[in-house]
Each structure stands twice: as structure tokens, then as C-alpha cells.
Write a protein that binds this DNA or RNA. Structure first.
Lengths: 84, 84
DNA sequence: AAACCATGTCAGGATATCTAACAAGACAGT
DNA sequence: ACTGTCTTGTTAGATATCCTGACATGGTTT
């Protein structure tokens, strides 16, 4: 009865993701451009993010803060993630 | 570690609520206008809804479908809800 | 018939997001 | 020191979304 959001449900616009991750829109788009993440799009071509995406951004951010560059993160995520 | 959304966190724009509730934007705004619900607003004055709001809309919708009018729903919700 | 209720629809304006481009600081290699 | 690459900022123009207010309409009540 209580409403929930499944982890894969793409229901968050970029602004909310910015707030939830403390990343800038520029960073979010750049990480996508670099293939670290592939958010869904709505009919108007606007990015829509899931909780899984947000979790991934937090991971990315923690790696960035540890000084790992995008190429490294890409490799780490590729080997860690079972994309079903 | 896993990301979650608290029930009171206002993170859904109206379009997502439309999809999640099968209500029209007109209905959503009308129910607010009638005092059935009071969604948050972001800095740009756009409505931002929480999971609690969505739950409330589902409740409202079920009453509407049972033929109860807005005045009746208002009373029901007012007596049922403990607004902390 | 007149009034009211709930919703649709439209217009004009404000806000949000998109892509593409250029700028710039940090850092690496030469 | 120079050059190139990486990451992020910023800006511009276009598109998408959302806002309020107004009028329209079918259904119900009086």
C-alpha cells in the first residue's frame, strides 16, 4: 500500500540528482559522456535517473575524491558491476 | 549505503506523479487548490512531491472512484491524518 | 433554467534541461 | 617551459516542462 520506488525506476530529474549527490549538472553529464553511466531519457529527451543511478554516482564521487580518474573508475565499475 | 527516498522527501516533479498516480496535472493542481494536499515547491516555484504526497493522491483517487466528492474527501482526510 | 462541481483546454510567461562550444586550471610528458 | 590531456565551469540558443488564470463543458443539484 505504501508507495515505494524500485531501484531501477527512472523517476528523478537531474536537479534532484544534483541535490542528492552533490554533483554538478556538468559532472553528471560528463560522466555519462565518458560512459560511466547511462541514464534513461523521457519522451522529451530529458535525463531521468533511478536510485541505482544515484548509488552509482555516489560510488563515482567517492572514487573521484580518492583521486581516481574517469578511466580508472570506468575500469573498476566495468569489472564490478553485473549489468542485468 | 543503498540510496533510499524518505517518505517526506519532496523529489518528484508533477510529470512523474502523473505517471505514478494516473491523475492529470489538472486534477493534481485542483486537489491542491481545494486544500486536499499541500505539496512543497522548489526555488523556481515548481511543485515537488514526496512519496507521502503520492500515497495521498492514491487515496484521493480511490475515493473519487467510489463517487465521493472533494468536500467529502477533505473531511475524511482531515479526520484521518495525523499531520506531524 | 441556473448554479455548482470536476475536469479539459488554451495562452502567455517563467523555469528547467538539452547540446555544443569555448575557457581554464591541474597535471603529465617531453 | 611548452604542449597536450583531463575535468569542470560557463555561456548561448533551442526545446521541454511547469506555472497561473481564464474560459469551456458535461453532469448534478436546486
Amino acid at each position: 500500500m505504501d508507495p515505494t520506488v524500485s531501484k531501477k525506476q527512472a523517476c528523478f530529474p537531474i536537479r534532484v540528482v544534483m541535490e542528492m549527490t552533490n554533483l554538478t549538472a556538468r559532472q553528471i553529464r560528463y560522466y555519462e559522456e565518458q560512459g560511466l553511466i547511462k541514464p534513461a531519457r523521457n519522451d522529451g529527451n530529458q535525463r531521468m535517473f533511478s536510485l541505482e543511478d544515484i548509488e552509482r554516482f555516489r560510488l563515482i564521487k567517492s572514487y573521484i575524491e580518492r583521486g581516481i580518474n574517469v578511466a580508472g573508475i570506468k575500469t573498476i565499475l566495468a569489472t564490478n558491476v553485473r549489468d542485468s
